[in-house]
Design a protein around this nucleic acid. Structure first.
Length: 457
RNA sequence: GUGGUUGUAGCUCAGCUGGUUAGAGCGCUGGAUUGUGGUUCCAGAGGUCGCCGGUUCGAAACCGGUCUUCCACCCCA
């Protein structure tokens, strides 16, 4: 038999029925992106290593798939670095290119590189696969799609409000129930760090707070201690965990908590604007909510932080996003504020699948298969196939006059909706015998009436 | 990256403390059925037991390495 075939670690094959469902999700997202004024771009699947390396933190670099130099370039291998145990430098000498790790950094590169050809604020969306050399787990793969919409070149909060509307629009169109759009602001997190007197430990503090619902208050305090946060600071942070109530009530209490932090109050102000404006505009099927524990995302978020959860399913977040004031700065373009969101298509797929929410129109099964009775009949049926295709009905003729049994079995296995049996008898009578494969019923139909007959079912 | 786990037919899995020709169900192919699938019956094909090495008279089984699967952590979509 030879070598056993298999896909590479962390990758997947998709069957036709799965692709149909995935495309339905992508298409729904695309349609909304476009009605909100985003235009599609595409960037290469691999970039120069220098574009990607160092942009995702110390953890990130390790997870970037690197592309080995080929041909003469292999001679550039820095053997000295290897002998000295300097693996990063050795790796760099072996590889000049890497698969993209996300869509945001390539987008930043794109904006800086083409800044003279873009009208700002520039709004783009991008739906392409990305690759991560992560250890695969359930619904965590090494190759997956991201669906990003970003705008760069404006710090207006109008866009934050727009994104809330966009989340609502897409999730409503996909019939995702009980979706909650959680919003926080990096400035508030900075404020918390500032108030505690450990401003420089903001990352450790936010990462710990983010785990509140997972490890509880005790766990968070423990983690903070282990990260070297002083007892004094802990005491100052503790009141934060006593804040309760709905979004409004919690914002009011946060204001008191952050009274001494200018940046923290700025964050509150921004959130108030977003929540007030969203209230005026209204939402179709989702809810918005303030969540201080939200500290996800890469370290480059500087303003709003978004995360969307579906409470009908116990699955992680299905969308995310946030504002980053200086993303293009790493490529030398200053003062370009950006804000973007991302839909987790694989997660959304799992939600729709689990709740059985894919519409029946997502169905790419063949509509009509003509049984092949022989040369003469086949020629006649090919004419019918052509007519049906012109009428927009997907149809085929079985390629050879195999046994009826075999042809019917093929139709069944393939999930064909209708089978046309047109032999000598039917040809003489000028009718088509149409069998509905779901119900097993069959009728003799006039050729002119065929399209209507199929539509009715 | 750390710790654990998994791998036997296309699929899901049996296979005793190491002992002849490695089994089942489903699927597949053919037939019962030369104009009727999804039900039934009969027959058949299909396996260097993930891969490499070691221990042993003898390895699917034990040991080491490697790849893969899944899980927790880290991180993340």
């Amino acid at each position: 038999m030879g070598q056993k075939p298999s896909v590479a670690k962390g990758t997947r094959d998709f069957f036709p029925a799965i692709v149909a469902k995935r495309q339905y999700i992508f298409q729904t997202i695309k349609d909304s992106f476009e009605t909100y004024g985003f235009s599609p771009i595409e960037t290469p699947s691999f970039e120069l290593s220098s574009t990607l390396m160092g942009k995702y933190g110390e953890e990130g670099d390790r997870l970037i798939f690197r592309i080995l130099n080929s041909g003469e370039k292999m001679k550039k291998a820095d053997v000295d670095a290897l002998n000295e145990g300097n693996l990063p430098r050795f790796a760099n000498s072996l590889s000049e290119k890497a698969l993209r790790y996300d869509l945001t950094v390539p987008f930043a590169r794109f904006v800086v590189q083409h800044q003279n050809d873009l009208a700002f604020p520039f709004k783009r969306y991008q739906i392409q696969p990305v690759w991560r050399a992560d250890k695969p787990q359930k619904s965590r793969y090494q190759e997956f799609y991201q669906c990003d919409a970003d705008v760069v070149g404006s710090d207006s909060l109008v866009y934050e409000v727009d994104y809330v509307q966009l989340f609502d629009e897409v999730l409503t169109n996909l019939n995702v129930p009980q979706a909650v759009i959680k919003i926080n602001n990096r400035k508030i997190l900075s404020g918390i760090a500032e108030v505690s007197g450990e401003a420089e430990k903001i990352v450790a503090i936010t990462v710990a707070i983010d785990k509140l619902d997972k490890i509880g208050l005790e766990g968070v305090l423990k983690e903070l201690q282990s990260k070297g946060i002083s007892e004094d600071a802990l005491e100052k942070i503790k009141p934060l965990f006593k804040i309760t109530g709905d979004t409004r009530q919690r914002l009011v209490q946060m204001k008191t908590f952050l009274a001494d932090s200018e940046i923290g109050l700025k964050g509150i102000e921004e959130l108030e604007y977003i929540f007030n404006t969203t209230d005026q505009l209204g939402l179709k099927s989702t809810e918005v909510e303030f969540d201080v524990t939200l500290a996800r995302g890469l370290n480059y978020y500087t303003g709003a932080i978004f995360e969307v959860k579906c409470n009908a399913v116990s699955i992680g977040s299905i969308c995310g996003g946030g504002r980053y004031d200086d993303l293009t700065g790493i490529f030398g373009m200053k003062n370009m504020s950006g804000v973007g969101i991302s839909f987790g298509a694989d997660r959304i797929y799992d939600v729709l699948e689990e709740l059985d929410l894919f519409p029946s129109s997502v169905d790419n099964r063949l509509e009509l298969l003509f049984i092949n009775f022989g040369e003469e009949e086949a020629a006649y049926c090919m004419g019918m196939v052509k007519k049906m295709r012109e009428a927009g009905v997907s149809s085929e003729l079985y390629p050879k006059s195999a046994k009826m049994n075999k042809q019917m079995k093929y139709a069944n296995d393939r999930g064909v909706k209708f089978v046309a049996l047109v032999g000598k008898n039917e040809m003489e009578q000028g009718v088509l015998r149409i069998k509905n494969m779901d119900t097993g019923e069959q009728d003799d139909i006039q050729p002119d009436a065929l399209v209507n007959h199929l539509k009715k079912a």
